[in-house]
């Protein structure tokens, strides 16, 4: 028994925010400075009444339309988001109805951020291999822009809103990739370095503006990423008996294009092995890896038989690396 990634579809928020728009009225920032620091030219921003659930719903409908997958065959729905429609019920329950999925479906949310997609692949593969599920619909989407203070451009410049839909299946026919093992990890000591403090049970309300918006300590996150990504990739490769040079492509979480370039240089990886994307979308958290995979599929960047490592890392701290064998020509 194996598990396969059948297809991916993507969706981004409609509104485009340029760097010029972003810096308007904010002292000390220029559009050029934003681009130089992040590699982003613009980002997609959700409308006030547009949720991650809406974006996930549209991505799933696009997937059903483009891939020919019959929604009636979906038996598990996982929605990975940190921007749920409600405190309760879970967004997955709401989307079961909106997507007209069978009422026999197992539906639940996965509350992870940038590691969420690779956690989702690990979970979906586990469900398929254990014969608990035959077709898992994995939706990954977030609207972090709603958490960003508009004047805090060190944070607001980075994030965009979007979602992806993926189907993980036991059927090997017409698939994009075979999903291999994963290595996962968690270090809650980093929780305070990427956090929205107020609004939930620990701190329901706060008069302090910084509590109500996303706080990010970029230096700590970068330091965590530099050491953790290398460790988790090495652990994964040790597990399957491969070495770094054996890998044909490294698809990292796209924190931002500059960040991925720096990570590539820090590990002395050949740039041609590391796709970099979303310079006009922004960091869509758990959706960045599948968005880049979908771009690679469209452009034919990878060839059948090539081995890729996907690495999600960030808020939590949480991380996961997954090996896949590309199948799509």
């Amino acid at each position: 028994m194996s598990a396969f990634l059948h297809a991916i579809a993507t969706e981004v928020a409609a509104r485009v925010q340029t760097n010029d728009e972003l810096v308007a009225g904010v002292d000390g920032w220029t559009a050029d400075r934003i681009f130089t620091r992040t590699g982003l030219t613009e980002r997609r921003i959700a409308a006030g009444d547009e949720t991650a659930g809406d974006l996930c719903c549209r991505a799933a409908e696009r997937l059903f339309a483009e891939s020919g997958i019959d929604r009636a065959t979906i038996d598990t729905l996982i929605v990975c988001t940190q921007s749920p429609d409600y405190f309760l019920p879970s967004t997955a329950c709401v989307l079961q109805d909106r997507l007209r999925l069978p009422r026999s479906v197992a539906a639940f949310d996965l509350g992870l951020g940038c590691s969420g997609y690779t956690y989702g692949l690990w979970l979906a593969r586990s469900l398929v291999l254990s014969e608990s599920s035959s077709n898992v619909l994995l939706l990954a989407g977030d609207t972090y822009s709603k958490y960003c203070h508009p004047q805090d451009l060190a944070v607001a410049s980075l994030f965009g809103d979007g979602a992806t839909a993926s189907v993980i299946t036991k059927s090997p026919e017409s698939v994009w990739a075979k999903i291999g093992p994963s290595v996962l990890g968690t270090d809650g000591r980093g929780a305070a370095n990427l956090i929205v403090r107020a609004g939930a049970s620990r701190l329901p309300t706060s008069e302090t503006p910084s509590d109500r918006y996303l706080h990010m300590d970029g230096a700590e996150i970068a330091s965590f990423a530099v050491s953790t990504v290398k460790t988790v990739v090495t652990s994964l490769l040790d597990k399957v008996g491969l070495r770094w040079p054996d890998i044909d492509g490294f698809v990292f979480h796209q924190a931002n294009p500059t960040f991925v370039q720096r990570l590539t240089a820090a590990y002395r990886l050949p740039p041609e092995k590391v796709p970099i994307g979303l310079s006009n979308v922004g960091n869509t958290c758990s959706a960045t890896i599948p968005m880049v995979l979908e771009q690679c599929a469209r452009s034919g960047r990878f060839q059948p038989g090539q081995t890729l490592v996907l690495v999600g890392f960030g808020v939590g701290y949480s991380w996961a690396a997954t090996l896949i064998e590309w199948k799509k020509s």
Binding site: R37, T38, A154, G190, N193, G218, A219, E220, I221, A222, S223, F224, V226, S227, F259, R262, L263, A265, A266, R268
Partner: peptide
């Protein structure tokens, strides 16, 4: 963001990984 660049420089140019 410049501090992030410094973190990457220390890794890339000097093989130094800082505790977060």
């Amino acid at each position: 963001l410049a501090v992030v660049e410094l973190v990457f420089m220390l890794q890339r140019d000097y093989d130094l990984e800082l505790p977060p």
